[in-house]
């Protein structure tokens, strides 16, 4: 019995903006369950008094002078876009 339901798998796929087939959902259910069981070995460790490390270097916010610099040319920026017109990138309509 998987600890992750099909509903959860589909919810996660929606959050990840990933279309999945019914067959893929079953496969992910199995594989996620395996990986999560594997990850649960971390619970053997008592980490109540341990601070999380998000980053290995002892760094705080890095600031620089706020100086205006030229940006990239618009025609360059849109050249990789699948659909563009007059320097704008086109997507399916968002508002009805």
């Amino acid at each position: 019995m998987s600890r992750i339901s099909m509903e959860q798998v589909k919810h996660v796929a929606h959050l990840a903006r990933l279309a999945i087939t019914e067959e893929e959902a079953q496969q992910f259910q199995h594989q996620l369950d395996q990986m999560i069981s594997f990850a649960e070995q971390l619970n053997e460790l008592d980490t109540d008094q341990v601070n999380p490390t998000s980053h290995v270097l002892d760094m705080k916010n890095v600031m620089r002078e706020d100086v205006a610099k030229p940006g990239l040319p618009v025609e360059e920026v849109v050249k990789n876009a699948p659909d563009s017109k007059d320097g704008y990138i086109r997507v399916p309509s968002i508002i009805e």
């Binding site: 999560i36 990850a39 980490t47 341990v50 999380p52 490390t53």
Partner: peptide, 14 residues
């Protein structure tokens, strides 16, 4: 349970 726990274990490994 997962992400933050892993970050704490990372501290121990470091």
């Amino acid at each position: 349970a997962y992400y933050k726990k892993a970050q704490k274990v990372r501290t121990l490994i470091k």
